[in-house]
């Protein structure tokens, strides 16, 4: 049965007709062609699909589109400001915090939420905060540096 889900995605109003069992990640990837959000496991273990729902990091593979009806969704495609990269995007590049790039969108979205949540940006806090996102390439070393670096800039801004 088809449902209509009303969302604001990356600042734009969207009304999407989809079946009731459509996940948010499917809605983003298959209905809105926002393929920057990746699916790595389907079981909310890897975090590659992390997006923001009303400003909070959510694993989009494990929430139904109908559950977020009326919400504001931000994906990796929507965090740059008029072409200027978000501080977290810039820091991932600057610190070599990505290799294959597959976990990167989810990692960046989770990291932004981590900084915005106001937690201390010490290495142990960052590592614990990123515990829900798996990266197989970087060994996390440079991701931790990127989050610390961007976090400082975001809080100074």
């Amino acid at each position: 049965m088809s449902e209509t889900v009303n969302l604001i995605v990356n600042g734009q109003d969207k009304a999407v007709s989809c079946s009731a069992n459509t996940t948010l990640s499917q809605l983003l990837r298959e209905h809105l062609m926002l393929t920057g959000t990746h699916v790595g496991c389907d079981t909310s273990q890897c975090g590659a699909c992390t997006v923001h729902v009303d400003g909070k990091a959510v694993k989009s593979c494990t929430i139904l589109a109908v559950q977020v009806d009326g919400s504001e969704i931000t994906t990796i495609e929507g965090i740059a400001n008029q072409g200027e990269q978000h501080a977290m995007q810039a820091a991932f590049k600057e610190c070599h915090g990505l290799q294959c790039g597959f976990c990167t969108p989810g990692m960046i979205m989770a990291s932004i939420d981590l900084v915005q949540s106001g937690m201390d940006l010490t290495e142990p806090e960052i590592r614990e905060g990123l515990e829900g996102n798996i990266c197989r390439c970087t060994g996390y070393h440079n991701i931790v540096s990127a989050v610390a670096s961007a976090g400082q800039k975001m809080r100074e801004a």
Binding site: T35, Q85, Q89, H96, G101, P105
Partner: peptide, 19 residues
């Protein structure tokens, strides 16, 4: 040298097979 490939990956513009 910072990586030339990074811009597409950090902006969600990578093109993987399932995309």
């Amino acid at each position: 040298v910072l990586r030339k490939e990074d811009n597409r990956f950090i902006t969600g513009k990578g093109r993987y097979t399932d995309d």
